[in-house]
């Protein structure tokens, strides 16, 4: 473990430049360039807002704004998109870098580090855009927004933990990359993102405690929509779960690494 951090520190410059290159390369020939980081999730928000606003808009309570549904949606999607982007990137991380891993010796921990870097960068850009959009809609954030880094960090740890486990398994059982997007899609609809918690019948709400993303999405909504302190207790629980997943994923990677280079 300390060896890994040492390697990460030694390769800090490489991680930074990879993040930079990846962001640069992604938009090298697109006209709107970096704007797509923001446009994609905002377009998603717009679609849900237009389609679902008549059905659900009235049910968002707790804020006084006629665009409340759009604001609620944006906060949830911002949290979810960070999580799902990390999962999707980790899922194919080793396969995409297979050639490199077979040819060049480098500490593998830099690969997830680059994912963290780019995803957090994207999410932060989205955050800035969201603040702008909210201001435009007449919704101003409170100081509780300062909790956001904690929520983001927890989301990242949970995402990397899950993602790396799936990524390692995916090298050997490629079906995983087909299954995961479906599972993510289901999980998305089982998290109160496009609908408020209140639409779930009271008797089924206990099921949400098995959804690790629920406290995080709720955290995003608490600080961005309602401007209240997030539920620190449940976020701490998720942080513990995420850390355990992360530790397990590193263990799994270590066990798998001998055979991994052989099948890539």
């Amino acid at each position: 473990m300390p060896l890994m951090f040492h390697a990460l520190w030694r390769y800090r410059y490489f991680v930074l430049s990879s993040v930079q290159n990846e962001i640069r390369a992604r938009f090298v020939r697109s006209r709107l360039g970096g704007l797509w980081i923001i446009l994609n999730p905002l377009a998603q928000v717009a679609i849900y807002a237009v389609i679902l606003s008549n059905v659900l808009a009235a049910k968002i309570q707790g804020i006084d704004n006629k665009y409340s549904f759009a604001i609620y949606l944006t906060a949830g999607i911002m949290g979810w998109s960070l999580f799902s982007e990390i999962i999707n990137r980790c899922l194919n991380l080793f396969i995409a870098h297979g050639n490199l891993m077979k040819k060049v010796m480098f500490p593998k921990v830099v690969l997830p580090a680059v994912v963290v870097g780019t995803s957090v960068f994207d999410n932060f850009m989205l955050f800035l855009a969201v603040l702008g959009v909210f201001a435009f809609l007449g919704h101003l954030p409170t100081w509780e927004v300062l909790w956001l880094p904690v929520i983001i960090a927890t989301t990242v740890i949970l995402g990397i933990g899950f993602g790396l486990i799936l990524g390692v398994l995916n090298v050997f059982v490629r079906d995983i990359s087909q299954v995961v997007p479906i599972v993510l899609q289901i999980a998305f609809w089982f998290t109160p993102i496009v609908y408020p918690l209140s639409v779930i019948p009271e008797s089924y709400r206990y099921l949400l405690q098995f959804n690790p993303m629920y406290p995080l999405v709720k955290g995003y909504q608490d600080v961005l929509v309602y401007g209240v302190k997030p539920d620190i207790h449940s976020i701490t629980m998720i942080l513990i779960v995420g850390t355990l997943m992360l530790v397990f994923s590193f263990f799994l990677f270590r066990q798998a690494s001998e055979e991994m280079a052989d099948v890539l």
Partner: peptide
């Protein structure tokens, strides 16, 4: 190995040498 076609030679040098741990 590890050259990114979209980056310039100079950027790739930084990247590749970074991968060597410098």
């Amino acid at each position: 190995m590890g050259f990114d076609a979209e980056l310039t030679g100079r950027q790739n040098v930084f990247h590749a040498a970074g991968l060597m741990g410098f």
